[in-house]
Amino acid sequence: MRSPILIGYWTMVRKDLVRLFRIWSQTFLPPVVTMSLYFVIFGGFIGSQVAEISGFSYMQFIVPGLVMMTLITSAYMQTVSTFYFAKWLHVIDEVLVSPMPDWVVIAGYVTGGIMRAFIVGILVLIVSLLFTHIVIFNAFVIFAAAFLTSLLFSLAGLINAIYAKSMDAISIVPNFVLTPLTYLGGIFYSIDLLPPFFRTLSLFNPILYMVNAFRYGFLGVSDVSLWVSFAVMGGLSIALLIVVMILFKRGVGLKT
């Protein structure tokens, strides 16, 4: 017989899954369309004029980064939006009054973020096949980088939603923090092409490590050490998990 905790967790996951597919035109379609445009414009029109990077065509070089961008945005948006609206409509009370421990509730929301990120990521990867040939250097690295990044940004979305008191508050971070960091995280270029100052500055951008670890899984090339990348992803995930656990324990933004 399954444990009550597992049943509670699975109920949360099933609910999120049903919702994800119910509103597929908001969850799955927009990122696929956006990424298709990136493939056409950057990969097709502009990319054809750009020289190879690390021995790969420009299109092959940017595909892992664009998939990673999708993972980051999808994971973040899933938790920030579902948790914020659950809070706003007081639907969050359903789980808060239940016997599920805080960590199960957190796991439920975070799993929703990871699921959405993986589904959208796979769809974008499939679409990219229309534009280029994909090579896989190390499937485990791809999976581990995708998992840790989705986990990290699901937790980040959750923190944003916990503190958010208005709709504006859930769009400020994605628009003014996440998007610039993602664009400057080495998706479209190798940081080796940057002047020394900007190269050094880029090393302070955590998304750079995620993009490069993911790219290493596909192409076997990276601007930074793979181990450092995993240390950054793992370390930040643990740090954010601790923050979320503390916020839940104190009831910040959840209880009065």
Binding site: P4, I7, P99
Partner: peptide, 15 residues
């Protein structure tokens, strides 16, 4: 029906 069965799930009751 989903609202009610989900709540049962949160309390550990199998589907």
């Amino acid at each position: 029906i989903d609202i009610v069965t989900n709540q049962a799930g949160y309390y550990g009751i199998p589907y």
